[in-house]
Design a protein around this nucleic acid. Structure first.
Length: 362
DNA sequence: TCTGGGGTCCTAGGACCC
DNA sequence: TCTGGGGTCCTAGGACCC
């Protein structure tokens, strides 16, 4: 058992990643407010904003229409996920040259366990500087790093140092570092949880840390114990280098609301093809197909159907999703979004029934 | 202001089985 | 007539993250 040994964890986070890649690839965009995301005519939102754009109050998930009102001379760029994926792989390869214990969280973020690579915090800080330099030299991107004894503190530390920062929280300094931060700084505390906690008078991480465990559990339910520990700088989670995929999906928001009809059914067909393609790429078959619909008033519903024989092809997915759509799409309802998701994934090779019965295992 | 698209995890109720 | 308890699977919705 090595769990009692002190660990050193990095959280590395590329700064304004998508926007930075666009500025890197297109020098005219450097120094300009850049927003990556769908067009306002297609009801797009901001996927990423350069720091020049953030100065105008623009942030990710903001409706693009509002972003462009806040900064009319901002340059909007449609996302190019293939390109971001390519850059991400290069950066992750640099991370892995420092330690094999790398846990990517998304294209632009990862945890690294550098306990074995760095004997002590001073060495870890030097390693972090080295890592930042290499990412900058080899890709032109800047990365913020948080260094701490566990994941949660490292992640919050990297957030604080952005952009282009290095923040070290020494072992023992966790609670002092965390206490003044707003409760939202904790991973897993979103708008709803924040609201609930604020009603109880809890505004900072320190407020939560001072709570009795039983009170935290009462306020936060099953997540109480975990969040209470994180508020006190305690997080025993290990780095997970290989995640198992649980679902594959595709969805799209229409430029204009749509009723049921040939146009909606054609989109359903395209989505089924898209999901089938991704299923094939990941090597899975699915036992559950679900349909997601968003009405014009933004109310969102889903319907799902599970089958005995896992599905792989677009036609089968379309047939199941189409039957689900038949169940709900009557009358004059208008929709703004349609999606198909596949879950209960099984290995594609195992999904195919063995053709000759005599080969079945004995 | 008018709300994307890719995911993960949790809850709660109901069906069904023993 | 009044009514178990544990387990598993399925479905729908919602919070949250990037």
């Amino acid at each position: 058992m090595t769990r009692h040994a002190a660990r050193i964890i990095f959280h590395a986070d590329l700064d304004a990643f998508y926007a930075s890649v666009e500025q890197l690839d297109n020098p005219e965009l450097r120094g300009m407010p850049v927003v990556v995301g769908g067009s306002p005519e297609h009801r797009g939102v901001v996927t990423a904003a350069s720091y020049e754009a953030r100065a105008f109050g623009i942030h990710s998930a903001m409706p693009m229409s509002r972003a462009l009102r806040l900064c009319p001379h901002a340059v909007r760029v449609s996302p190019r996920f293939d390109r971001y994926g390519e850059m991400s792989r290069r950066v992750m390869a640099i991370f892995r040259s420092f330690t094999p214990l790398v846990e990517p969280l998304s294209l632009d973020e990862a945890f690294l366990d550098v306990t074995d690579a760095a004997p002590g915090m001073a060495a870890a800080e030097a390693l972090a500087r080295d890592l930042r330099r290499r990412v900058r030299d080899e890709t032109g991107l800047t990365v913020s790093i948080g260094v701490a004894a566990n994941k949660s503190v490292a992640k919050i530390a990297s957030d604080r140092g952005k952009p282009d920062g290095l923040t070290v929280v020494l072992p023992g300094g966790e609670t002092a570092f965390l206490a003044p931060l707003p409760i939202r700084a904790l991973w897993g505390v979103g708008p709803r949880t924040e609201q609930g906690l604020q009603r109880a008078g809890i505004r900072t991480v320190g407020d939560l840390a001072r709570l009795k465990l039983a009170d935290a559990a009462r306020l936060l339910g099953s997540r109480g114990e975990f969040l209470h520990a994180m508020a006190r700088g305690i997080d025993e989670r290990e780095i997970v280098t290989d995640w198992e995929r649980k679902s594959v999906g595709a969805e799209t928001t229409f430029a204009h609301d749509l009723g049921d009809g040939p146009e909606l059914r054609a989109i359903l067909r395209d989505l089924a093809a898209d999901v089938a393609r991704r299923l094939a790429r990941t090597g899975f078959a699915a036992r559950t197909v679900s349909l997601k619909l968003r009405y014009a008033d933004f109310k969102t519903i889903s319907r799902q159907s599970s089958v005995e024989a896992p599905v792989v092809d677009a036609a089968a997915i379309e047939r199941i999703a189409g039957a689900l759509l038949d169940r709900v799409a009557g009358g004059q309802q208008q929709f703004r979004l349609l999606g198909i998701h596949c879950s209960k994934l099984v290995d594609r090779a195992e999904a195919q029934p063995p053709l000759p019965l005599e080969i079945s295992e004995c």
